[in-house]
Design a protein around this nucleic acid. Structure first.
Lengths: 217, 217
DNA sequence: CACGATCTCTGCAACGACTGCAGAAATGCG
DNA sequence: CGCATTTCTGCAGTCGTTGCAGAGATCGTG
């Protein structure tokens, strides 16, 4: 399936992960801002220039696979069959991605902690979320036969993403509260169930708006 | 009402506005990233060090009164009387702020154009919006007697803010489409009316969620 | 294995944003 | 006018980021 992994590709992957591991460790220990690129480079055994080459921006070290994640969402939305709604695609995507957000994943836990500690990173994350939200809004607009600029798809997408916000915070809190990994895994919320609950909200809202068209004046 | 404006304060205000005007002009002409602090300083007739002193971060030149705007929202939410809901306070705030967002304001138009042209600035704006949204969610949670971590206030706030998104885009589009200021002013959407429409969505959604409590398992 | 072709890593130099500091300049007050 | 306070400025330094060119590693091939 995958491309033939030569010695070269393998080494690149190892280097990338070494840089990432070194960066996350320092970020978690000393903070994002207080950690310098040369520090990370030394810890990873490469030159500073190489770090900047692998990760064009320092923030990319905190969101290493955001791009791929959103590309998966875009694919799901684009490749859905005629009968499949945008929400179906979103549900499938969430079901696929949920394991990655699991609090039991140490990497993910550290990342959430780092993001929570720096305004810059929160801004970055908000931007990523907004991008995904726009994609979903466009797909919902398509389902509804509406324009992307209409109120319904915008609010539906916004409300839907609010649930992901809650989901993320939930994971964070549970992580902060307990240290026992087993306990964490046991209490993990069902992301899809939460999404379905969000959709009750969205469906009712959209229906109400459609039953009560805007007054003319 | 205000503090006694001496010669000193007055001059500071003038300097601040000179820097801001110079910055906005260059940003609009050459782009945010391509414009350097020294350029702005020279155009404003001050030293680069002074620019950094007035505006600690370059982005602050694009969002000069965001802080005050959100403080006004926070005040409205905090100071509401027992009978006044969070939504009432939000409506009052929007009614107050709407003139500032009017497309007829050249300053606001330029700002929106600049923000639209740079990812960094969009990220910043998203972060600001997210902060405001959290404030509103907390106030709505208070109204509902719910926790800030519950689903309902989160989604209500998210859906409510989606309408502001639409509002902003609407202003942007109208600005792009026509150049005639009179035409713009005439077509300005009624922000409060749009908010009330959003609240139809939110109210129906919240009601649906309350009528259909989460299943236990 | 050897060898050229290709790709990667590295050091260098430069630019721009940002900051702390100390002296110069301006302002307010008696 | 003379003094205290505030503001502005230039300087030096750190850090992130980028372009470039040469050193080094890897690859495919003979």
């Amino acid at each position: 399936m995958g491309p033939p992994l030569g010695h070269r590709e393998r080494k690149k992957q190892r280097t990338r992960e070494a840089i990432l591991a070194a960066a996350l460790a320092r970020f978690d220990e000393r903070g994002f801002h207080a950690t310098t690129i040369p520090e990370i480079a030394e810890a990873a055994g490469v030159s500073p220039r190489t770090v900047s080459s692998y990760f064009p921006a320092k923030e990319d070290l905190v969101f290493p696979e955001t791009e791929e994640t959103f590309e998966r969402l875009a694919s799901r939305l684009a490749d859905r069959e005629p009968g499949e709604t945008a929400v179906d695609a979103l549900r499938a995507w969430i079901a696929d991605e949920a394991p990655r957000w699991d609090a039991a994943d140490a990497q993910a836990r550290i990342q959430r902690r780092i993001v929570a500690s720096e305004e810059t990173l929160q801004a970055h994350e908000q931007h990523h979320k907004a991008r995904a939200q726009r994609m979903v809004a466009a797909a919902i607009a398509d389902d509804l036969g509406a324009s992307i600029d209409d109120l319904e798809p915008q609010m539906a997408a916004a409300a839907t993403f609010a649930v992901l916000e809650v989901l993320g915070r939930d994971v964070e809190e549970r992580e902060a509260r307990v240290g026992d990994v087993a306990c964490i895994a046991e209490g993990t919320v069902d992301a899809v169930a939460l999404l379905d609950r969000a959709l009750i909200f969205v469906a009712a809202g959209v229906r109400a708006l459609q039953d009560d068209p805007p007054g003319m004046g």
